[in-house]
Computed example of a mutant assay.
Amino acid sequence: MKPSEMGLVLAKCAAFDSRTIGETDVVAWHEAVGHLEFDLAMEAVSRFYANSRQRMWPVDLVETVRLVRAEHERRQRMIPRAAQRLEPNTISDPRLRAAVRQIAQAASVSRQAAPDTDEVHQRALERARTDRAVQASPPSRRTRSGPPLDLQAVTVPPAWAREEIRALLSDAALHERGRPCGRVGCANRHCATGAAEM
Protein backbone atom coordinates (compact mmCIF):
# COMPACT_ATOMS: atom_id res chain seq x y z
CA MET A 1 0.00 0.00 0.00
CA LYS A 2 1.17 3.55 -0.73
CA PRO A 3 1.84 6.09 2.04
CA SER A 4 -1.21 8.09 0.93
CA GLU A 5 -3.35 4.96 1.32
CA MET A 6 -1.80 4.36 4.73
CA GLY A 7 -2.96 7.85 5.65
CA LEU A 8 -6.51 6.90 4.65
CA VAL A 9 -6.37 3.75 6.80
CA LEU A 10 -5.21 5.81 9.78
CA ALA A 11 -7.90 8.40 9.10
CA LYS A 12 -10.47 5.64 9.29
CA CYS A 13 -8.97 4.50 12.60
CA ALA A 14 -9.18 8.10 13.84
CA ALA A 15 -12.86 8.20 12.96
CA PHE A 16 -13.38 5.36 15.45
CA ASP A 17 -10.97 6.23 18.28
CA SER A 18 -10.39 10.00 17.83
CA ARG A 19 -6.61 9.69 17.54
CA THR A 20 -4.53 12.49 16.07
CA ILE A 21 -2.55 11.66 12.96
CA GLY A 22 0.62 13.33 11.82
CA GLU A 23 3.13 12.75 9.06
CA THR A 24 5.37 10.72 11.35
CA ASP A 25 2.44 8.43 12.25
CA VAL A 26 1.82 7.69 8.57
CA VAL A 27 5.54 7.00 7.95
CA ALA A 28 5.84 4.71 11.00
CA TRP A 29 2.68 2.73 10.21
CA HIS A 30 3.66 2.44 6.55
CA GLU A 31 7.04 1.05 7.56
CA ALA A 32 5.35 -1.55 9.82
CA VAL A 33 2.31 -2.58 7.77
CA GLY A 34 2.79 -1.05 4.32
CA HIS A 35 2.98 -4.53 2.79
CA LEU A 36 -0.78 -5.08 3.36
CA GLU A 37 -3.37 -4.59 0.62
CA PHE A 38 -5.27 -1.31 0.96
CA ASP A 39 -8.80 -2.78 0.47
CA LEU A 40 -8.20 -5.52 3.02
CA ALA A 41 -6.73 -3.02 5.49
CA MET A 42 -9.78 -0.73 5.20
CA GLU A 43 -12.12 -3.69 5.75
CA ALA A 44 -9.99 -4.88 8.67
CA VAL A 45 -10.31 -1.50 10.43
CA SER A 46 -14.10 -1.71 10.31
CA ARG A 47 -14.03 -5.33 11.46
CA PHE A 48 -11.65 -4.56 14.35
CA TYR A 49 -13.67 -1.65 15.73
CA ALA A 50 -16.92 -3.57 15.36
CA ASN A 51 -15.59 -6.12 17.86
CA SER A 52 -13.26 -4.14 20.15
CA ARG A 53 -13.24 -1.04 22.35
CA GLN A 54 -9.45 -0.90 22.28
CA ARG A 55 -7.29 1.29 20.07
CA MET A 56 -5.91 -0.40 16.96
CA TRP A 57 -2.16 -0.96 16.71
CA PRO A 58 -0.14 -2.23 13.73
CA VAL A 59 -0.16 -5.79 15.08
CA ASP A 60 -3.97 -5.65 15.35
CA LEU A 61 -4.18 -4.52 11.74
CA VAL A 62 -1.94 -7.39 10.56
CA GLU A 63 -3.97 -10.00 12.49
CA THR A 64 -7.33 -8.64 11.35
CA VAL A 65 -6.19 -8.45 7.70
CA ARG A 66 -5.11 -12.09 8.00
CA LEU A 67 -8.61 -13.04 9.24
CA VAL A 68 -10.33 -11.01 6.50
CA ARG A 69 -8.11 -12.56 3.81
CA ALA A 70 -8.82 -16.09 5.10
CA GLU A 71 -12.56 -15.36 5.05
CA HIS A 72 -12.33 -14.09 1.45
CA GLU A 73 -10.44 -17.21 0.38
CA ARG A 74 -13.00 -19.45 2.15
CA ARG A 75 -15.82 -17.69 0.29
CA GLN A 76 -14.01 -18.13 -3.02
CA ARG A 77 -13.66 -21.85 -2.41
CA MET A 78 -17.35 -22.15 -1.55
CA ILE A 79 -18.48 -20.51 -4.79
CA PRO A 80 -19.27 -23.41 -7.12
CA ARG A 81 -17.49 -23.53 -10.42
CA ALA A 82 -19.53 -22.26 -13.31
CA ALA A 83 -21.65 -25.12 -14.50
CA GLN A 84 -20.71 -26.32 -17.94
CA ARG A 85 -23.43 -25.92 -20.51
CA LEU A 86 -25.22 -29.16 -21.10
CA GLU A 87 -25.69 -30.04 -24.71
CA PRO A 88 -28.08 -32.95 -25.32
CA ASN A 89 -25.70 -34.50 -27.87
CA THR A 90 -22.86 -34.82 -25.32
CA ILE A 91 -24.92 -36.80 -22.77
CA SER A 92 -24.67 -40.57 -22.99
CA ASP A 93 -27.71 -41.49 -20.86
CA PRO A 94 -30.80 -41.32 -23.13
CA ARG A 95 -33.19 -40.42 -20.29
CA LEU A 96 -30.99 -37.56 -19.14
CA ARG A 97 -30.54 -36.41 -22.74
CA ALA A 98 -34.34 -36.31 -23.20
CA ALA A 99 -34.79 -34.38 -19.94
CA VAL A 100 -32.20 -31.77 -20.94
CA ARG A 101 -33.83 -31.39 -24.35
CA GLN A 102 -37.27 -30.97 -22.70
CA ILE A 103 -35.98 -28.31 -20.28
CA ALA A 104 -34.31 -26.41 -23.12
CA GLN A 105 -37.54 -26.42 -25.14
CA ALA A 106 -39.60 -25.27 -22.15
CA ALA A 107 -37.16 -22.40 -21.52
CA SER A 108 -37.35 -21.25 -25.13
CA VAL A 109 -41.18 -21.42 -25.10
CA SER A 110 -41.40 -19.36 -21.90
CA ARG A 111 -39.07 -16.76 -23.40
CA GLN A 112 -41.26 -16.50 -26.49
CA ALA A 113 -44.49 -16.35 -24.45
CA ALA A 114 -43.31 -13.44 -22.31
CA PRO A 115 -45.22 -10.27 -23.22
CA ASP A 116 -43.44 -7.28 -24.61
CA THR A 117 -42.42 -4.80 -21.91
CA ASP A 118 -44.04 -1.92 -23.81
CA GLU A 119 -47.33 -3.81 -23.83
CA VAL A 120 -47.11 -4.49 -20.07
CA HIS A 121 -46.27 -0.83 -19.44
CA GLN A 122 -49.23 0.30 -21.54
CA ARG A 123 -51.63 -2.01 -19.66
CA ALA A 124 -50.32 -0.74 -16.33
CA LEU A 125 -50.86 2.87 -17.41
CA GLU A 126 -54.43 2.14 -18.50
CA ARG A 127 -55.17 0.40 -15.19
CA ALA A 128 -53.73 3.34 -13.22
CA ARG A 129 -55.84 5.81 -15.22
CA THR A 130 -59.07 3.90 -14.59
CA ASP A 131 -58.25 3.55 -10.88
CA ARG A 132 -57.55 7.30 -10.67
CA ALA A 133 -60.82 8.10 -12.44
CA VAL A 134 -62.81 5.93 -10.02
CA GLN A 135 -61.14 7.56 -7.01
CA ALA A 136 -61.71 11.07 -8.38
CA SER A 137 -65.43 10.56 -9.06
CA PRO A 138 -67.83 11.80 -6.34
CA PRO A 139 -69.24 9.11 -4.04
CA SER A 140 -72.82 9.58 -5.26
CA ARG A 141 -71.82 8.63 -8.83
CA ARG A 142 -69.89 5.51 -7.89
CA THR A 143 -71.65 2.26 -8.64
CA ARG A 144 -72.62 0.26 -5.59
CA SER A 145 -72.68 -3.50 -5.74
CA GLY A 146 -74.98 -5.75 -3.76
CA PRO A 147 -78.67 -5.67 -2.87
CA PRO A 148 -80.53 -2.36 -2.50
CA LEU A 149 -80.24 -0.64 0.89
CA ASP A 150 -83.13 -1.20 3.35
CA LEU A 151 -83.16 2.20 5.06
CA GLN A 152 -85.66 1.18 7.72
CA ALA A 153 -83.48 -1.72 8.92
CA VAL A 154 -80.36 0.42 8.82
CA THR A 155 -81.64 3.52 10.58
CA VAL A 156 -83.68 1.98 13.41
CA PRO A 157 -81.60 2.50 16.56
CA PRO A 158 -81.73 0.11 19.52
CA ALA A 159 -84.80 0.30 21.76
CA TRP A 160 -82.76 0.94 24.89
CA ALA A 161 -81.36 4.26 23.59
CA ARG A 162 -82.81 7.63 24.68
CA GLU A 163 -84.63 9.70 22.07
CA GLU A 164 -81.71 12.09 21.30
CA ILE A 165 -79.26 9.15 21.10
CA ARG A 166 -81.67 7.31 18.79
CA ALA A 167 -81.79 10.37 16.50
CA LEU A 168 -78.00 10.70 16.43
CA LEU A 169 -77.53 6.98 15.71
CA SER A 170 -80.09 7.13 12.93
CA ASP A 171 -78.39 10.17 11.35
CA ALA A 172 -74.95 8.55 11.66
CA ALA A 173 -76.21 5.37 9.95
CA LEU A 174 -77.53 7.41 7.03
CA HIS A 175 -74.29 9.43 6.76
CA GLU A 176 -72.19 6.26 6.73
CA ARG A 177 -74.12 5.05 3.71
CA GLY A 178 -73.85 8.35 1.85
CA ARG A 179 -77.45 9.42 2.43
CA PRO A 180 -78.70 12.78 3.78
CA CYS A 181 -80.39 12.63 7.19
CA GLY A 182 -82.85 15.47 6.51
CA ARG A 183 -82.01 17.32 9.74
CA VAL A 184 -81.98 21.12 9.29
CA GLY A 185 -78.47 22.61 9.61
CA CYS A 186 -76.63 19.28 9.40
CA ALA A 187 -73.01 19.92 8.41
CA ASN A 188 -72.41 16.47 6.91
CA ARG A 189 -71.28 16.61 3.27
CA HIS A 190 -74.09 14.30 2.14
CA CYS A 191 -76.71 16.57 3.69
CA ALA A 192 -75.08 19.67 2.18
CA THR A 193 -75.10 18.18 -1.33
CA GLY A 194 -78.66 16.94 -0.85
CA ALA A 195 -79.83 20.44 0.20
CA ALA A 196 -78.06 21.99 -2.78
CA GLU A 197 -79.83 19.61 -5.18
CA MET A 198 -83.23 20.46 -3.69
Rank of each mutant, 00 (worst) to 15 (best):
A124H: 04
A15W: 03
L168H: 11
R123P: 04
A159F: 12
L125Y: 00
V100N: 03
V100R: 07
R53E: 11
V65W: 02
R132M: 10
C191M: 04
G194Y: 09
R66V: 01
T117S: 13
I79K: 14
I103C: 07
E43D: 06
A44E: 05
V59I: 13
A44I: 04
K12A: 09
P115M: 10
T117D: 11
H72W: 14
R179C: 13
A99H: 09
L125P: 00
G22P: 01
R55W: 08
V27A: 10
R183T: 14
R97D: 01
P148D: 06
E71N: 03
L151E: 12
T130L: 10
P88M: 09
P88A: 15
N188H: 14
A50S: 09
E87G: 02
I21T: 04
T155H: 02
W57A: 11
A192N: 01
L67A: 12
A187I: 12
R85L: 14
A187T: 15
P3D: 04
P139S: 13
E87C: 07
A44L: 05
Q76A: 15
F16W: 07
A82T: 12
N89M: 10
R101N: 10
P180F: 02
A161E: 09
H30A: 01
S110P: 00
L40I: 06
V156L: 11
F16G: 03
L10P: 02
T193F: 07
C191E: 01
R123V: 10
V9Y: 00
P139M: 11
K12S: 05
K2E: 11
C191W: 04
Q105A: 11
T90Q: 08
A107H: 08
V33L: 06
F16M: 03
T193S: 15
R66M: 02
E63C: 06
R144W: 07
R66D: 13
N51P: 00
R177N: 15
T143D: 06
I165C: 06
D25Y: 02
A195P: 03
